[in-house]
Nucleic acid binder design. Structure first.
Lengths: 235, 235
DNA sequence: GTCTATACCAGGATAGAC
DNA sequence: GTCTATCCTGGTATAGAC
């Protein structure tokens, strides 16, 4: 379990979100589509491929990224790449599945054992922002390409979106029941909070240009939301 | 100028946003790329092409939409379509330019002659939501494809995004200077309001499933924002 | 495990008949 | 003004040498 206050740095080190860690998990979970057997080689090349793929997908979109582009950017030949995935679509599926599992793990961990709705709300908001800060290219890709996913992946992606939102809604609901939050439409509130969380990774260029840090954004958001939903506690 | 209260229906009729009206303007502004001379024919076919293009782009994205798809969906042959645009990219440019000009016109009109910051804020928020309700496919396309636009169009698209945001920021700023709004970071506030406006057209499926109307969403948003930014007026 | 060479197809675009 | 037939590039994917 985590301490009460959570800075971005400590978040980052506590959740295992390093590139290598993630590529190793991908390697382990995809032994059927990955033909390479040596873990060291596989992890190194997977890391190159994923970096390249996320970079290209983020700048031009998945369907505009050709595998020739990807080959150039990753430094591997076409043939070599095809030892790591069966098809372009398969590559997308691998990336997606891994990202989803990381996000679910993070959100589960930060709320574990916390009861107070306000604290829980803060935690979820902060964790979501921090996670999307570390994995920005993944979040962006996931958001922008969902509609192009094959049926299966599409459904899972939508479910994940609704999962986070429901987490927010439930917290709001319990806060209202205990008289801590003003009564207002919890579903809509969950939806708009989600959209503000997403803005952070969707408009990265804007916030970057304004030299805004994730901690500043997080603080602003918490204040903004709280000043709207908290019951007035003055005498 | 408009009346104080603005329902969705009256908004729709006051702004000229009918498909035909818009296609006629496209025809007039693109006499260089459109080879057809008879207005009647041109407007009818443009309307088919645009409907089909927006539908396909919204479901699979611009780059995944082939011109053969478009030909099938619009009912025109490849050859015929090419009398209406010079290239696939050209088609996108036409759609974009027209949409931008409509949005700017709408936002200009609803704020014209209004001084009170709170009213002005309400007007902009409402008009943005209403406009994106009528032109949802255009807004969605514009958001999702901006990064694929050629340099020129890309810049214009970003400018338009910042234009709306600046409108919000200036209103907030003037409200704060007059002591009507709490003091808080106006730039960030503008950004998150924008993101909540965008959620309406980006997640249409979600709100549709929840049977939410644009007027309900608009009312919720106004309450939410006002309860966070208005200075306490009690004695 | 990795590369090069190549198969094969779908995409955008156009010419020329009607 | 519209359609059909065709061109050619560039896409995904694979076979087989190293």
């Amino acid at each position: 379990m985590m301490s009460n206050e959570m800075g971005f740095a400590s978040f980052r080190s506590q959740m295992k979100l390093s590139k290598e860690e993630i590529c190793r998990e991908i390697f382990l979970h995809n032994s059927d589509s990955i033909k390479i057997r040596k873990e060291g080689v596989a992890v190194r090349n997977l890391s190159r491929i994923l970096d390249a793929a996320l970079k290209l997908c983020n700048s031009k979109g998945f369907s505009s990224m050709s595998l020739r582009d990807l080959s150039r950017e990753s430094g591997l030949s076409m043939g070599a790449m095809y030892s790591y995935f069966r098809s372009k679509e398969d590559l997308l599926r691998m990336i997606q599945a891994q990202g989803r599992s990381v996000v679910l793990r993070v959100l589960g961990r930060v709320t574990e054992g916390i009861d107070d709705p306000l604290l829980k709300l803060r935690r979820v908001i902060q964790a979501h922002l921090y996670a999307s800060e570390v994995l920005q290219p993944w979040f962006y890709l996931s958001y922008m390409e969902t509609r192009n996913f094959p049926r299966d992946e599409y459904k899972k992606s939508i479910e994940a979106e609704l999962f986070t939102e429901n987490m927010l809604i439930e917290i709001i609901d319990s806060g209202q029941k205990r008289g801590l939050f003003k009564s207002m439409d919890a579903v809509l509130l969950g939806a708009v909070i989600k959209s503000m969380l997403q803005d952070w990774y969707l408009k990265r260029w804007k916030y970057y240009k304004r030299k805004m840090s994730v901690e500043q954004y997080s603080e602003f958001l918490l204040n903004f939301i709280e000043s709207s939903i908290l019951c007035d506690t003055r005498v």
